[in-house]
Design a protein around this nucleic acid. Structure first.
Lengths: 250, 250
DNA sequence: AAGTGGTCTAGACCACAAG
DNA sequence: TTGTGGTCTAGACCACTTT
């Protein structure tokens, strides 16, 4: 045979392309640098543009690249670690000066069935909803919907109008009066709803990490937060070395 | 105008298709049921197969569908919640009868740079590597590589040959002699390496949730685990309502 | 106006599982 | 052998950003 090696299990072109590009990113490009456009890259590698795009998609999924319509494809910085599991910081309304969340509005709505189940309310019962955004270095990392049943904020004054951030702050302040007794969290993969995508500066459908947090207070589920993190730029961190190990002692 | 509504911001076909299919899944299909094949679905909706596939891809990403080459597209069951954050269960080697991890082999290798950094070892220093698989209901959920520096298993007998599961069990048993002092975890999105994909019964490149756990013992980082969870079938859970809230008291 | 990535088409062939 | 999903092509047009 003239071929020095025959691939008994030939890997797809886009897969090979991905590794080639990945190596090139490590050695020949700096963070923030802009790559040649897709048509040129495809021509350079001798593949169709769709195939080239399949490789780029995976690299973007892995946080190596960032693509923006009308602009180009750039080399992404390493993912930022965002602390998600620490109750002391995540309990809404705690007035930490380092609170990374910014309230952007409030509303009243019927939560999705999954949330209603966690809250233990009837499926068609409305709750307060506070919308918040989490920023880091000026970039939006996450968009959150915080569902608060009436029972958790009994002393709510009805001065402020729904929809405003003033109302949102009032709700958070009321919620903070409760003493947090525990929390449960879950992380899963999803795709950004149109509304979240806008806030995250991404296209609808782009991959996101959905963090659902169930807050316990007064022996009940006091609130449920559904936070949508950009999967391309975020690495979610849980726990820390100094504490929390009491679990093992018991 | 003859049109009752003009879309000033027309949504992409595949996006609309996705919502239509999603509704159909809720109302007309049962879990495990097999959908019509892609060519027929595309014809039925009057779109190209590639467009139809774009919608299916997103639904699979969201855990609604499962596609298998040569078989077909089926309606996926709800994601299973897998406990990830509880140190009492995740500390390797603890002889819990309910331990969901099954050792499948061991080796000696130089860890990836990111892991070496966590371990505090030189980049080219080899460590023991234990390969484990996590199962639920007979289905593989996760594949893990556990990196253990020599210093963490000083009493290791060199009877067993590397590569075998016997050696893996020995390593885990030795590791369990250490008292766990703390752990740190991170979750991020990735795509399955060829090796992991095989173990997870997925195609290479399919989306996975990568959980990196740093175990502390004896004041050092005693081991680092890199676990690759199927993103389509898994919902990772952290913490629990009964404990862990000591953090707030301090 | 020009250039970028995003969407879409209508084909073709391949790898795999099951009969 | 048949039928499935997976890969790939060579185009076209659209939405968006920048100049």
């Amino acid at each position: 045979m003239g071929t020095t090696q025959l691939e008994s299990v030939p890997e797809p072109k886009y897969w090979h392309l991905k590794t080639v590009l990945s190596d090139a990113l490590d050695s020949e490009f700096a963070v923030g640098e802009i790559l040649p456009n897709e048509r040129e890259l495809a021509a350079r590698f001798g593949v169709a543009r769709a195939t080239l795009r399949q490789a780029l998609e995976q690299l973007e999924l892995e946080g190596r690249l960032q693509r923006r319509r009308g602009v180009g494809t750039t080399v992404a910085p390493p993912r930022v670690g965002v602390s998600v599991g620490d109750p002391a910081h995540s309990w809404p309304g705690i007035n930490d000066t380092a609170d990374p969340w910014r309230p952007v509005g409030s509303d009243e709505a019927t939560p999705p069935p999954a949330v209603a189940r966690l809250l233990g309310t009837e499926p068609d019962r409305t709750t307060h909803v506070v919308r918040r955004t989490r920023l880091a270095h000026g970039q939006p990392l996450a968009a959150e919907l915080l569902y608060i049943p009436d029972a958790s904020v009994p002393h709510l004054s009805s001065i402020d109008a729904p929809g405003g951030t003033a109302r949102a702050r009032t709700l958070l302040r009321e919620l903070a009066r409760l003493e947090l007794e525990g929390q449960e969290q879950a992380v899963e993969l999803g795709s950004a709803r149109a509304e979240d995508a806008k806030e995250l500066d991404r296209l609808p459908g782009s991959p996101v990490l959905i963090v659902t947090t169930r807050y316990y207070a007064q022996g009940r589920t006091a609130a449920v937060a559904v936070a949508t993190y950009r999967a391309d730029t975020c690495r979610l961190t849980f726990g820390d070395p100094s504490g929390g190990m009491q679990l093992l002692a018991g």
